[in-house]
Design a protein around this nucleic acid. Structure first.
Length: 539
DNA sequence: GTGTCAC
DNA sequence: GTGACACAACGCGCC
DNA sequence: GGCGCG
């Protein structure tokens, strides 16, 4: 049954090849035959299920694990074919010389059933032949139903310098015209088997050619952003891919739209990113697709600066978004919102802003605005300017810019003190309770714990991976009083708003406030207002 | 190895 | 019919 | 999204 095709293809009056019949025993032998047929190729056969499972490998096996050799599965051959050598007469299937190139035993690596593995399209095995040794894999490809790859696994037998040699001399007919009459030799070079034109050869699979670089402004001036484009940014080239991929299915916004937004507001956002380690949260398939965090940027492009930080005794290279090229690069990777540290690399241990993160947790947004105003009132009382922004997600952030000289610990302590004071002033509105279960309904969670080294907060002007492509929008306090709607601040209208209002957050980078007095006053204030809990306990 | 196309 | 050329790098897990 | 792996 399994050998029907084999028998059909052959006229046994004319060929000395063995007749196909199933064999009982299971010996796990293999053979590689050098086959000088219409094309020179190598037949790779593994004994299993009473037949030889066979693949035609045009370039033959390679000990270089980086070579993935195309292996076309052909009809099962009878086990007697293991020994077959000779000349198949002209006019017959596979006409030409056949020699055993290598033979020996094999074993399936994980002890599973090789027939099943073949059916599954994945086979790993160890070869013990004269020439071939070590671990190999055969992996079935998706397209076509008989295309596989033969790959050498990385082990002690792997050898990138290895070169295949044929048993028989290579006939002139297999050589490209240009090379003919120059002593056909026994080393199978690329030229013998590689029929691809020189021009397209060696374009490494990863680096796709997306055309000539276009000046970035010109690229984004285009009516429609689609496909891939290489963009020239200053001296750098940035490849932008899948520009027409839908990132916001409901609105139809594409990755191209997102990139265009960041290009347009780059001058406004970059100051908030510059010098700050970034944690990338990537959505390669848009806001509804799978997302993941990336701390370490593997293989950063030349224009991207990074900082190596020790994390659990391992160096981790964090991205620094110091220029437009990097911004476009990380956005192209699916980094929709940008998440910088609170401190910069020139002074990593000292944050230059304090953040209060207000999370409504299902509450009415007007409550959030009330709490924000309560925070402002407390901060005003401590003579500190504060600046609100919509998180773009569901809450609100209040920033207090400070001099770069307070440790994260000092800042965290101060932030907690302020949070307690606000909580004391508005106990019905505010909770400091982290645990969701313990939070009362109608309370807004005031998170001050975000003020720690290594934590991040979504930067102003970041687009959020949320419906409507909402933006983390800086506001005026007057706007907070009127309780804005976050869906009114989006990627679609933010550039206009910036043109009209300028950058409302500019003081956050320049108003370097001193905390010393505020800390002193806050401590005093807290002593006055705090609940006298300790006394009731001790009583 | 297979498929397609020009001659 | 034959030779020249084109095609021949998948799916998964990880960050 | 893109790399390395089998």
């Amino acid at each position: 049954m399994a050998l029907e095709t084999y028998n059909q293809k052959r006229n046994f009056a004319q060929t000395r090849e063995p007749k196909g019949k199933l064999e009982k025993g299971q010996h796990n032998r293999f053979v590689v035959q050098e086959h000088h047929a219409s094309r020179l190729h190598f037949d790779f056969r593994l004994e299993m299920g009473g037949v030889l499972k066979s693949w035609a490998v045009p370039k033959g096996p390679s000990f270089n694990p980086q070579d993935k050799r195309l292996a076309v599965m052909t009809e099962d051959h009878p086990v007697q074919y293991l020994q077959f050598e000779g000349h198949i007469a002209e006019g017959n299937y596979g006409a030409g010389d056949m020699r055993v190139w290598d033979t020996g035993q094999y074993e399936v690596t994980d002890g599973s059933d090789p027939v099943q593995d073949v059916n599954k399209g994945r086979l790993r095995f160890r070869l013990m032949g004269e020439k071939l040794h070590g671990e190999w894999s055969l992996v079935k490809l998706g397209r076509g139903d008989n295309q596989w790859l033969l790959i050498k696994a990385r082990d002690e037998f792997a050898d990138p310098t290895w070169q295949l040699e044929t048993v028989l001399p290579i006939e002139e007919k297999y050589l490209p015209k240009a090379t003919r009459s120059k002593t056909p030799h026994q080393v199978v070079t690329d030229q013998v088997t590689d029929k691809t034109p020189k021009a397209t050869r060696h374009k490494s699979t990863g680096a796709k050619v997306a055309g000539k670089p276009i000046p970035v402004a010109k690229a984004f001036a285009a009516k429609k952003l689609e496909g891939d484009v290489v963009v020239k940014v200053d001296k750098h080239e940035v490849t932008l891919t899948h520009l027409d991929k839908i990132y916001w299915p409901d609105e139809g916004y594409t990755k191209g739209d997102l990139l265009k937004y960041y290009f347009e507001i780059a001058d406004t956002i970059l100051p908030y990113l510059r010098g700050r380690p970034l944690i990338l949260k990537r959505y390669p398939n848009g806001i509804q697709g799978h997302s993941f965090f990336q701390h370490d940027v593997e293989d950063p492009p030349d224009f991207m600066e990074t900082i190596a930080l020790e994390v659990e005794r391992q160096p981790v290279r964090y991205a620094l978004c110091n220029n437009l090229a990097t911004l476009l690069y990380i956005v192209n990777l699916g980094s929709i919102a940008q998440n910088p540290w609170h401190s910069r690399v020139d002074d990593l241990h000292h944050p230059n802003w304090i953040v209060f993160d207000l999370d409504p947790e299902g509450q009415n947004f007007s409550l959030v605005c009330q709490v924000a105003l309560a925070i402002k009132e407390v901060l005003d009382g401590l003579s500190l300017e504060s600046y609100p922004k919509l998180s773009g997600s569901s809450g609100l952030h209040v920033y207090v810019p400070i001099k770069t000289e307070y440790s994260y610990d000092e800042v965290a302590r101060f932030a907690e003190l302020v949070a307690k004071i606000v909580n004391q002033a508005q106990p019905d509105l505010v909770t400091l309770e982290r645990s969701l279960r313990k939070r009362e309904k109608g309370e807004v969670y005031l998170d001050h714990l975000q003020n720690a080294e290594g934590k991040t907060i979504v930067s102003p002007y970041s687009v959020r991976a949320k419906d409507k492509a909402t933006v983390a929008a800086p506001l005026t306090w007057q706007e907070v009083e009127k309780c804005p709607r976050l869906e009114d601040f989006t990627m679609a209208n933010m550039p206009q708003r910036i043109k009209k209002k300028g950058d409302l957050f500019q003081p956050v980078l320049h108003n370097c406030q001193t905390l010393d007095d505020a800390i002193e006053q806050a401590e005093k204030l807290w002593k006055e207002v705090r609940p006298k809990k300790s006394k009731s306990v001790s009583r």
